[in-house]
Amino acid sequence: MATEKEQELLEKLANGVVNYDEEAVKEAAQEWLALGLDPNKAVFDGLVKGMQECGRLYEEQEYFVPELLMCADALYAGLDILRPHMKSEDVGVRGQVVMGVVQGDVHDIGKNLVKVMFEAAGFTVHDLGRDVPLEKFVEEQLRTDSEIVALSAMMTTTMVGMKNIIKAIKEKNPKAKIMIGGAPVTEDIAAKFGADGYAKDASNALKDAINMISSLRDLT
């Protein structure tokens, strides 16, 4: 059970993210650590909870991309303080993810928002950036043996390239799970391209990723 003080700080963290108030988030994170409390809890029940609320506000068309970017900055402000104190064995789900925006596309906002969620959830993120050639995804997956490869495309004109990347990765490593996302991507396209998951937004991407990793672990 969270004490009243804990509860207050968790709310301050979550609200700080929602209101893109970096200062409030930093204060709450520092106070949390000063009290010797579990940093994982602050991340999951504070920062991530706040970001999920931002996702909801985006769906409701109350928040838009500029707001989400500022919320993500606030989340990072907290994460930078809390992360050095997190012990990796305490993190519930761990895994590695290779992510990037496919070649021809220089829009990385969606990818960055998904990355925030993965980092907050304790994943090791291998971020290839934007305008990433096909081979790069394949090489990086093999090099890091990541369970998940997340591909993003903002434009139809580049989404088409995902199909080849998926095929190439699956040929080299059939166990790797591939999720795709971005404005033009739909569930139908994900199925057609042979992706394992399709993420409508950052918080769905995270949920999907956690499910994928659990299913991979069940197999082994």
């Binding site: 021809g104 596309d105 220089v106 305008d131 050639p133 004109t157 580049t158 390239g161 080849n164």
Partner: peptide, 16 residues
């Protein structure tokens, strides 16, 4: 601009 001259599949140019 990057016109992706060396890429085999079809890509629209982007600003590099």
């Amino acid at each position: 601009m990057n016109a992706y001259e060396d890429v085999a599949h079809l890509l629209y140019p982007t600003i590099k």
